Simulated scan of single mutants.
Amino acid sequence: MTIGAFKIRWFYDGRHRPMERRDFAAALAAALAAPAVLGTSPAQAAERPEAGAGAGAGLTEHMRAVLARESDDRDTARALAPHLYDVGFVWHPETAELDRLDFIVAYSFGNRLATSGDPAKTLPEPGPVNEELADTIARLRKQRKVPVYAQWEIARFLQSKYRMDDVTSIEPVIAQDGTITYLSTDGVAQQVLQYRKKAPGGIGTACVVGFRDHHKRCVQTTRDRGMTAYAPRGFAMPYTYDPQSGQAWTRRRDLYLVHDMSAQWQVVRAKLIAQAYSNS
């Protein structure tokens, strides 16, 4: 049975018994109340990005119950269920009004392979998604003129298309032999932090720009690097995938969401290990 964005099926517990109808009804109600990964338009998300953030308690509780049965371990299920919900079902970052934000940090999404040259030593083409991210920054700058720190694929458009000033391009690392090493989302955040430490008045609060399905992780990563960070309230992020992207995982939404959840889990893993064994 399919309702909205959710395909619902009967579940079985560890003893292969069908879920009771009352459990199914509760899970369905929770799922419909929770934020839907595929059910909210970008404009709706921009207007009310935190909508439903507190409505996932029922779904989380249902996941905890199923996991407890499957694992025969209630304590572990209780610990894991909130992470399962956050990584799998929450895709809108926390927002703030633009006038509270002191600088823009923008993370690229995909690119187009260079048409010639050694791919290990030739920068790819920025691609249409990064042009849309640059367009988003231009809209933000019309309302608030603040410094911009943009990954190079976006910065190229800010410079060539908009002739925008006060833009710092976060470039890949190029070795002496010309080999290019591209920065991860965390690598970009680390570079931005170093720039902001030297800024007059201190680090300040970041306005984070990123592709819609990457946006939550962009905000989280910026915060994990020690910066206060929010998405700009009322501004929709680009959401159209480029089937010609040089990065295969950024060509289709179903592939990218798996990629992004995997990246989120790696961060959760590192944090949990550090919390559990802080003295090791």
Score class of each variant (00 low, 15 high):
P42Q: 11
P126V: 15
A175S: 06
A77M: 13
I174K: 06
P126K: 09
K271P: 00
R225L: 07
S71V: 12
D166S: 11
I3W: 13
K271L: 03
M1T: 05
M63W: 11
N130T: 11
S280N: 15
I154R: 01
P119G: 10
D242H: 04
K271V: 07
W10S: 14
I273Y: 14
A34D: 03
N111D: 05
R252D: 06
A33P: 02
K161T: 15
H215M: 11
A150M: 08
S116Q: 09
L123C: 10
L133P: 00
L133W: 02
A274Y: 03
Q151P: 00
M261P: 01
T205L: 07
A263P: 00
V219S: 05
Q191W: 00
E20Y: 08
D224I: 04
R196W: 04
H83M: 01
I273A: 15
L158M: 02
E171L: 03
P35S: 12
G201D: 08
Q190R: 15
V192G: 07
V209I: 15
Q194S: 08
D135E: 08
D102P: 00
Y256N: 03
G54V: 10
R156M: 02
A25W: 11
G246A: 14
D75S: 08
P49H: 03
R233H: 13
S169R: 03
Q220C: 02
I203A: 05
R22Q: 03
S184D: 04
A114F: 09
V167A: 09
A79H: 10
G117P: 12
M1P: 02
M164D: 01
F89M: 04
H259F: 11
G226Q: 15
A31T: 13
K7P: 01
V192N: 10
N130G: 10
T136G: 02
S71K: 12
V146Q: 02
P42R: 09
L38W: 14
L38C: 06
P49Y: 12
Y256T: 03
G178H: 07
A43I: 14
D177M: 06
I137A: 06
R233K: 13
Y182E: 06
A106V: 11
R64K: 14
M237I: 11
L183K: 15
V258N: 08
A33T: 00
M63C: 07
A236M: 09
Q176K: 14
V209K: 09
R217V: 05
C207G: 10
L255V: 11
V188P: 08
A81N: 02
I174T: 09
R251F: 05
Q191V: 13
P18M: 09
L32S: 01
I104M: 01
R212M: 13
A248S: 01
D118T: 14
A276L: 03
S116W: 10
F89Y: 07
Q247D: 03
A206F: 12
F211H: 09
Y107W: 04
L255K: 13
A55F: 02
G201Y: 08
A150T: 05
Q266S: 15
A229N: 12
E125D: 15
Q220D: 12
S278A: 15
G201E: 05
Q191H: 08
P126N: 10
R48P: 04
T168S: 03
G117Q: 11
I137S: 00
G202N: 00
G127K: 14
A33H: 03
L28S: 09
V173N: 00
